[in-house]
Nucleic acid binder design. Structure first.
Lengths: 230, 230
DNA sequence: TCTTCGAATTGAACGAGTTCAAAAATCAAT
DNA sequence: ATTGATTTTTGAACTCGTTCAATTCGAAGA
């Protein structure tokens, strides 16, 4: 009784304020960028006191975390739609990567900060951190689906670690995208085209006996990487 | 006449103050880490006014740049010594990577910030930026030497782009090292062992006709990457 | 020696993120 | 409806990076 009422109270009043603050923040971030957006400006436009913003978000950085999960949600629908229709591995991977870029594109303006904080081991926003585990797990699962649902043969040794490696790959692409100031983000798309091509070629070649030592070595490596960050 | 006198004046007085500030800063960074070190604290221990620190270093971040070149200098001697003695490619690459880690190890405490700022496209510390071009060029040249002086056959197609790719690789290792909190940085060394193994295997395999499409694709990719950041 | 000009130095002041004690609002229980 | 506790809200105050106008210092030229 006490519990539920408290919960609903928290939701109706608190959550509403929280939502307003977050919406306002993202709005301002898109308008002016991150550094240029003041906590005072957020509070003012949201119609709350400065301190109140800190009641809901421990720091300015913590606002970014909310942004993360939003992006993640927005990606789910188009990704699943693609994976249900397209059986060709190359097209699946290519499509997913394009979706990744398209969904995050409106925020390119403040993407620098996104990775700046993400690269800091101490930051909770760090994609390897405890705190981002849920999103990370879902994201890796998506790459597992890319492989599973395809009509290509993937060597069974790779089944285990490849999704994680693809997730790492997508982080690399994101890093490139952040630095990419070309028109229409042309360079990033080009990079995706080329790297996906290589990846699919390599995945195909992996079954070749000649590649066995490399394959084994790469798998040991992937396993290490994964446990190091876990 | 005027020139030389001015120069020497700049050196004797200004440069000395500059040096004191930098030394003090690095000292404090090692002691307490970056975030915890105040510009006021640096100025105070260095025995100068706050504003004076800003006369020599445009910002707190710019102190890191000085750190970069110091690290780079410290790496030169042991690297060249190794490359003169050791002809085996695997051992050369392994040795260089170990030197990279060993020289930067005392600063692990504030390494997070190092990459945090480095990942920001706007930051002058960004390793892809205009401002870090000289150090980057030298660093890539070192990896070229690793290849050139070895007794392994490196496919001629690779000569052009491979040094750059190895530099990128060393950036990746550094990123891992930053996040590595294992005893004696054991995980980083293990990762180096495994990745160097794979790299040397791949470099060897690259001459195989079967690998031709992958090799060609990888080279196109490397060329793109390089021009994108230049 | 005196003047002059640029380099070096100073410290007050500003802006922005963050903290915190106190006030206000909300809600459960009597 | 009143009380008491808990959540929410407030805004002043603090810290720290950064800027800048003013001052001091040092040396070259008269």
């Amino acid at each position: 009784m006490k519990e539920t009422k408290k919960e609903s109270a928290k939701t109706s009043k608190g959550e509403q304020t929280r939502a307003v603050i977050l919406e306002t923040a993202l709005e301002l971030f898109r308008e002016r960028g991150y550094e240029e957006t003041t906590m005072r400006a957020i509070a003012e436009r949201a119609g709350v006191a400065l301190g109140n913003a800190y009641y809901y978000f421990r720091s300015k950085e913590h606002l970014i975390q909310a942004f993360y999960s939003r992006i993640h949600e927005e990606r789910q629908a188009p990704s699943l739609e693609l994976l249900n229709k397209e059986p060709d591995l190359m097209k699946r991977l290519l499509g997913i990567m394009y979706i990744m870029v398209e969904t995050i594109e409106p925020y390119h303006r403040f993407a620098g900060v996104l990775f700046r904080t993400a690269a800091d081991p101490k930051s909770p926003l760090n994609p390897f951190s405890e705190e981002s585990e849920p999103t990370r797990r879902e994201s890796i699962a998506l790459f597992a689906q890319v492989l599973e649902g395809s009509d290509s043969k993937v060597h069974k040794d790779l089944k285990q670690e490849l999704p994680y490696l693809l997730w790492l790959y997508h982080m690399g692409i994101t890093l490139f995208w952040i630095h990419d100031s070309s028109a229409g983000r042309a360079r990033t798309y080009k990079l995706i085209d080329r790297t996906v091509d290589i990846l699919v070629k390599l995945i195909g070649l992996a079954s070749n006996p000649l590649m066995r030592p490399v394959r084994k070595a790469a798998l040991r490596l992937a396993a290490d990487l994964r446990t190091a960050s876990a």
